[in-house]
Simulated scan of single mutants.
Amino acid sequence: MGTQLIWQKSSYSGGGDGNACVELAAATPANLHLRESEQPDTRLTTTPLAVARLLHHIRSGGDA
Rank of each mutant, 00 (worst) to 15 (best):
residue 1 M to I: 10
residue 1 M to R: 10
residue 2 G to M: 10
residue 3 T to S: 12
residue 4 Q to Y: 10
residue 4 Q to F: 08
residue 4 Q to R: 15
residue 4 Q to A: 10
residue 7 W to R: 00
residue 7 W to Y: 07
residue 8 Q to N: 14
residue 8 Q to S: 11
residue 8 Q to V: 14
residue 9 K to S: 15
residue 9 K to I: 13
residue 9 K to L: 15
residue 9 K to D: 15
residue 10 S to T: 02
residue 10 S to L: 04
residue 12 Y to R: 14
residue 12 Y to K: 13
residue 13 S to R: 00
residue 15 G to F: 02
residue 15 G to V: 05
residue 15 G to K: 09
residue 16 G to K: 06
residue 16 G to W: 01
residue 16 G to T: 03
residue 17 D to V: 15
residue 17 D to I: 13
residue 17 D to A: 15
residue 17 D to E: 15
residue 18 G to F: 00
residue 19 N to E: 09
residue 19 N to L: 10
residue 19 N to G: 13
residue 19 N to Y: 06
residue 20 A to W: 11
residue 20 A to T: 11
residue 20 A to V: 11
residue 20 A to K: 14
residue 21 C to S: 07
residue 22 V to T: 13
residue 22 V to P: 03
residue 22 V to I: 15
residue 23 E to P: 00
residue 23 E to H: 00
residue 23 E to F: 00
residue 23 E to M: 00
residue 26 A to G: 11
residue 26 A to M: 13
residue 27 A to P: 05
residue 27 A to L: 13
residue 28 T to I: 05
residue 29 P to D: 08
residue 29 P to C: 04
residue 29 P to H: 05
residue 30 A to P: 04
residue 30 A to C: 04
residue 31 N to Y: 06
residue 32 L to G: 04
residue 33 H to M: 10
residue 34 L to C: 09
residue 34 L to E: 03
residue 34 L to R: 02
residue 35 R to K: 02
residue 35 R to G: 03
residue 36 E to V: 08
residue 36 E to P: 08
residue 36 E to C: 08
residue 36 E to Y: 12
residue 37 S to V: 01
residue 38 E to V: 09
residue 38 E to G: 14
residue 40 P to D: 02
residue 41 D to Y: 13
residue 41 D to S: 13
residue 42 T to I: 13
residue 42 T to L: 10
residue 43 R to E: 05
residue 43 R to H: 07
residue 43 R to K: 11
residue 45 T to C: 09
residue 48 P to G: 02
residue 48 P to T: 01
residue 49 L to W: 12
residue 50 A to M: 07
residue 50 A to Q: 11
residue 50 A to G: 04
residue 52 A to K: 14
residue 52 A to C: 12
residue 52 A to D: 12
residue 53 R to F: 07
residue 54 L to R: 05
residue 54 L to I: 07
residue 54 L to Y: 07
residue 54 L to K: 03
residue 55 L to W: 10
residue 56 H to K: 10
residue 56 H to V: 08
residue 56 H to Q: 14
residue 57 H to N: 08
residue 58 I to W: 08
residue 59 R to M: 11
residue 59 R to I: 05
residue 60 S to W: 06
residue 61 G to Q: 02
residue 61 G to L: 02
residue 62 G to A: 13
residue 63 D to F: 12
